[in-house]
């Protein structure tokens, strides 16, 4: 069975033995850099988001996706590729992912990709996944964070699955690989996915390749391995522009986006309201009940989930 062929060093961290009988897996992890949510302000003059002053981080949910990919690689062997779409200033964040343990990194970067909504973003990422697959002998799994902390749409992973034409499972909590009864499809392997749903869980079985979004909280993202940092800092990050990806120019960026932002405003939620309520207990209770009804959205208490 083929072992991990990646040329990357493992740093000081010893990799798991892998499970040669059923591995390896080539996993593509989609990550993006986002400004820290609490640090973003609306520039009221230009009515655009002022991200300049905000510190940026790897989208927290994507760190969980990367951790799942690395844990799967530790278990089954294989390769973890990072994929991102954005400006070149995303490259340092890809390097953080490399220092965590990813084997290689790809950035889809072109001015034409700017201003993309989830429709255009998922298309562009799909073209990136397909090209990574072509260049490396195929991909088995695409992992995404459950949602980004800036847009919080959670719509890129299912959109990506649709563009790729592969099955999907969202909010995956635990993933394992198992042998399929019939050997032909999926290289004789299937995924078993435990998925968190409202008030419970589902266990799904799906063929490879597939797209999963990883539930935030499914794991604790490992800290990067300091010994990998020098390698990660110098590693070659593959950058592909629109021409390299051979994208349909009408499907990317602003042009390929179906939605438009009509207005943007500061929600004024950066600080708590700090309203002090004082009175007789009955008065306080009335005021609180009004607040609670407003927050929970309807006159009644929230319904119980079906059991």
């Amino acid at each position: 069975m083929q072992r991990d062929q990646s040329p990357t060093p493992h740093g000081t961290r010893m990799p798991g033995a892998g499970h040669a009988a059923i591995g390896p897996l080539h996993i593509v992890v989609c990550i993006k850099a986002v400004p820290k949510p609490e640090e973003v302000r609306v520039n009221l003059e230009t009515r655009t988001l002022d991200r300049g002053s905000a510190r940026t981080e790897i989208n927290p949910a994507d760190q969980h996706a990367l951790e799942m990919a690395l844990a799967l690689r530790d278990r089954y062997g294989g390769r973890v590729s990072l994929l991102s779409m954005g400006p070149p200033l995303f490259i340092p964040y890809l390097r953080v992912g490399l220092a965590m343990g990813a084997d290689d990194a790809y950035l889809l970067s072109d001015r034409a990709f700017g201003g993309a909504d989830t429709l255009a973003t998922s298309y562009t990422l799909a073209k990136g996944v397909e090209r990574i697959g072509r260049e490396t002998g195929g991909y088995d799994l695409v992992l995404c964070g459950e949602e980004s902390s800036d847009g919080a749409t959670a719509q890129v992973p299912p959109g990506l699955a649709e563009w790729l034409g592969v099955p999907q499972a969202m909010y995956a909590g635990a993933v394992s690989l198992e042998a399929a009864r019939s050997g032909a499809a999926s290289n004789g392997r299937r995924l078993r996915v435990r998925r968190e749903i409202k008030g419970g869980h589902e266990v799904l079985r799906l063929p490879l390749p597939a797209v999963l979004s990883v539930a935030t909280g499914a794991n604790v993202p490992r800290f990067f391995d300091p010994a990998r940092r020098p390698w990660a800092a110098a590693a070659h990050v593959v950058v592909w522009d629109a021409a390299a990806l051979a994208v349909d120019p009408t499907l990317v960026g602003t042009f390929g986006s179906a939605t438009q932002v009509a207005a943007v405003e500061q929600a004024g939620r950066a600080e708590r309201r700090r309203v002090v309520i004082r009175g007789t207990p009955a008065e306080e209770a009335r005021a609180l009940a009004t607040v609670i009804r407003g927050v929970l959205g309807n006159g009644q208490a929230a319904p119980r989930s079906p059991s």
Partner: peptide, 11 residues
């Protein structure tokens, strides 16, 4: 502990 280290790194 990894979460604490990430907090030092990002924040």
């Amino acid at each position: 502990l990894a979460g604490v280290l990430w907090d030092v790194y990002w924040d």
